[in-house]
Simulated scan of single mutants.
Amino acid sequence: MAYPTPVNGQITDTVSQSTLMSVGTAGSVARSVITQGFAAAMAASGQNSTAQQEATQILADAAMTAALARMETGGGDD
Rank of each mutant, 00 (worst) to 15 (best):
G75E: 01
D13A: 13
A43R: 11
T56G: 02
G75W: 01
G76T: 05
N48W: 03
A39L: 15
L20P: 00
N48R: 12
S16V: 09
Q53W: 00
Q17H: 06
A39W: 05
F38A: 12
A62N: 10
S28E: 15
L68E: 06
G46M: 03
A55M: 09
G74Q: 02
M64Y: 07
Y3M: 12
A26F: 10
T5S: 12
I34N: 00
A60P: 01
T56M: 02
T73V: 09
S28I: 15
A26T: 09
V7H: 13
D13W: 05
M64C: 01
A26L: 13
V29K: 14
G9N: 14
A40K: 14
S32H: 14
I11H: 04
A51I: 11
T14H: 07
D13C: 06
D13Y: 05
M64W: 08
R31G: 01
A62W: 02
M64K: 13
T19N: 04
M1S: 14
A63W: 05
E54K: 12
A41W: 04
G37L: 02
L59V: 04
E72P: 00
P6R: 10
A41L: 12
T5P: 01
G46A: 02
S22V: 08
I11D: 03
A51V: 09
A51K: 10
L68W: 02
Q17E: 12
G27F: 13
A69C: 00
R31S: 06
A55H: 08
D61E: 13
A39Y: 06
S18T: 13
A43P: 00
G76S: 08
S45G: 11
G27H: 11
V23M: 05
N48H: 05
L20C: 03
A40H: 10
A2T: 15
N8Y: 10
Q10F: 09
T65V: 12
S45M: 06
V33C: 01
Q57L: 08
A69M: 04
S28Y: 15
L68F: 04
A51C: 02
A44D: 10
S18M: 14
F38E: 14
T73R: 03
A30D: 10
A2H: 07
T19Y: 08
V7M: 14
A55T: 08
A39P: 02
Q57P: 00
N48E: 06
N48Q: 10
A55Q: 13
S28K: 15
A41N: 09
D13I: 03
Q10H: 11
M64V: 08
I34M: 01
T12L: 04
G46N: 07
Q53L: 03
V7P: 03
N8F: 09
M21Q: 07
S18Y: 07
F38I: 15
F38M: 12
G24V: 14
N8D: 15
A69R: 05
N48L: 07
Y3G: 12
V23P: 00
P4W: 09
A44T: 08
V7G: 07
Q36E: 12
E54V: 15
V23T: 06
T35C: 01
S49R: 11
M71E: 11
A63V: 11
Y3I: 14
N48G: 04
T65R: 15
G24K: 08
D78H: 04
A39K: 15
T50S: 11
D13P: 00
E72S: 05
T5M: 07
V33G: 00
Q36W: 03
A30Y: 06
L59S: 09
V33M: 06
T12K: 04
V23R: 03
S28G: 15
R70M: 15
M21G: 04
A66P: 00
